[in-house]
Write a protein that binds this DNA or RNA. Sequence first.
DNA 1: GATGAATGAGTATTCATTCAT
DNA 2: CATGAATGAATACTCATTCAT
Lengths: 204, 204, 204, 204
Amino acid sequence: MRKAPRQARSRATVDALVEAGARILGDDGWSGFTTNKVAERAGVSIGSLYQYFPDKLSLVDSIRRRHLDDCIAAMRTVRADGCPPMEVAAILVRAMIAAHSAHPGLHRVLLDEAPTSAEHRDPCSDFEVEYLSHYAGIVAASRKRRPTPADHAAAGVMSDAIDGVIHNAARRGSLGDPMMQAELVRLIGGYLAGAGEAAPVEES
Amino acid sequence: MRKAPRQARSRATVDALVEAGARILGDDGWSGFTTNKVAERAGVSIGSLYQYFPDKLSLVDSIRRRHLDDCIAAMRTVRADGCPPMEVAAILVRAMIAAHSAHPGLHRVLLDEAPTSAEHRDPCSDFEVEYLSHYAGIVAASRKRRPTPADHAAAGVMSDAIDGVIHNAARRGSLGDPMMQAELVRLIGGYLAGAGEAAPVEES
Amino acid sequence: MRKAPRQARSRATVDALVEAGARILGDDGWSGFTTNKVAERAGVSIGSLYQYFPDKLSLVDSIRRRHLDDCIAAMRTVRADGCPPMEVAAILVRAMIAAHSAHPGLHRVLLDEAPTSAEHRDPCSDFEVEYLSHYAGIVAASRKRRPTPADHAAAGVMSDAIDGVIHNAARRGSLGDPMMQAELVRLIGGYLAGAGEAAPVEES
Amino acid sequence: MRKAPRQARSRATVDALVEAGARILGDDGWSGFTTNKVAERAGVSIGSLYQYFPDKLSLVDSIRRRHLDDCIAAMRTVRADGCPPMEVAAILVRAMIAAHSAHPGLHRVLLDEAPTSAEHRDPCSDFEVEYLSHYAGIVAASRKRRPTPADHAAAGVMSDAIDGVIHNAARRGSLGDPMMQAELVRLIGGYLAGAGEAAPVEES
DNA sequence: GATGAATGAGTATTCATTCAT
DNA sequence: CATGAATGAATACTCATTCAT
């Protein structure tokens, strides 16, 4: 961001811009995301947008930062110590679906489509580190030990699998489908319940 | 396509265009996919591109068709009757990774970012129907019965989970990571081995 | 028009664009009328043109509207009540030549070549209705009665005849030729002086 | 034309091209007239078109020459010596309407829209000279004397007036309207019957 | 001669960004 | 500070024309 908003009015302007940007990015994708549209939707002039954000990418960075903070916050509410695997899975799945329901599509666009400004060193990394640590903690807890590198690998696969199922469901508009949810819980629960040894894959 | 290529020369041109388009779409995403770039990469003039494709979307359609045909072909090579679940999972995962290795990222862009020409009735649907049928057959076979609706739901979740893991690995450039592959096999193998009853998810 | 110009600066821009467009359309015809040329002639960037006109046709619509308004205004100045036919004809012809002198050729291009945007219901119609009513009024006045359907038919033929003579003269660059003007007056004056009964034409 | 067609086959090709060109030019106007469309409509390849015509304008020249020849031929059939003015007018009007009925619109496009190749010195002139001579002859005959310069001026105005009425009727699709035809005959007949002196127009 | 594949300058339109008011 | 007018490089697509087969 070009300059920190000092007065309340400025902060409201910045918030409106980030909110409008998130909406447009989620609804229209990266290629439908134009600065003029964002400014109009936020109810400010295009000049004001550039008063606070030096360019388009810095606006995306702000949107991303806000969204990932929200995700981490949602994740922190998950408390699954001591529960049986299936229940842990159910809690997890419910939390993830809730986190994606506010702006379905935004997450995917931010991660997949929108480019990252070269200046800000990859801001996803910080997020992913904490995110995966959380997952790894859950895996380790359900295996009743401290997190190991193997747990981190499992956490990554688990996170990506949930991501894939939810994201495709969002694309089809079937995020609420209970059968899908039940199967996803079964997939994750079974994985958590499984022993820690991975089956080998032969080289191709 | 606007015009069927008659001479050998023009068939080569069309192939070069589709290949260049697939590469650019996979590497640069929908917003980096410009007809001029495709023509240049294919080594032909922009006029030649429009001799065969009436507009940008029809080129995307051709790319999609070719890619989905490749996916289906890869899928058909999977013969898993009578194998234990873990082995089925390993075969499946290897096939899917192979199918995505040629143009990592292309699959996602085609499904998520690139718009579909209104004229061609959704060509993904045909693909998805056959694709999921295949998956459902595998699930049912490993449960030693004919495919049921529940098997179709399981197939969808399984397919999306594999998709998510592979796609995120592709994004990070770690498609070849053996630990990831092993964990993915364990996830899918465990799911296939599990009984057919889904665990319920409480209403939120 | 896409956007109403608020500041004085932008109103000047819009005026310059319409004026430049009229000039180019009249001089170079529809196929020589390119948005880039118009913007350049108006001394503004191509972006500014599209700030006010959503597309090429809307610019043509504005040009047409302005031109037809000018024509109607010129027409309204004609006051011929109680004059002898030859004098009415002279006044009419002088007014029409004056109306076409500013942008000779523009009228024809607007009516014949330039396509009409589908959105605006044919704006020529409104114009033609008022235009012909005026003509019919003149015809009826010179016949000392209220306008009848026959007067409307006569008005149409008269209007088209004047149009044809003036337009061909404009094409040859001889709009100012006094002999042509005199003959045209004689043609129209004689027509107005003639009795109201039309001579029949045998079927071909 | 680039080269004279020697064999019968070549002549047929050239004829097909000219005919297809006339059709397209009349129907779609100058801006819809493309060489590829003409070649396709004529059933020959674009290469063959350029075998006979060095460029687009030379094709237009051929179309124009053929059309004007047809017009002159139609004009030569008019024999009105000794008839009363109204009858002469009726014959004239009928002939002109017939001449425009084959390709309505083509005449206008050739004269107004289509540019003339710089090489061929204005090919319209030759045509117009003979055309106007014919008209002047008719005017003079109805005035029972040899053609004078004043008759030429009258012929020009008369020709342009008829042109204007017919062309606007063609545009509105009302070429067959008998009331219009009758009024046009009355206009021209009255003009022919009038004395030879023109009424003066004051300078503007 | 005939064919049609290939070319590329030109045209309409968008959008990130600047700057005078 | 806020506004919105102005800019112009970039993009999708057309069409006259050439030339290898």
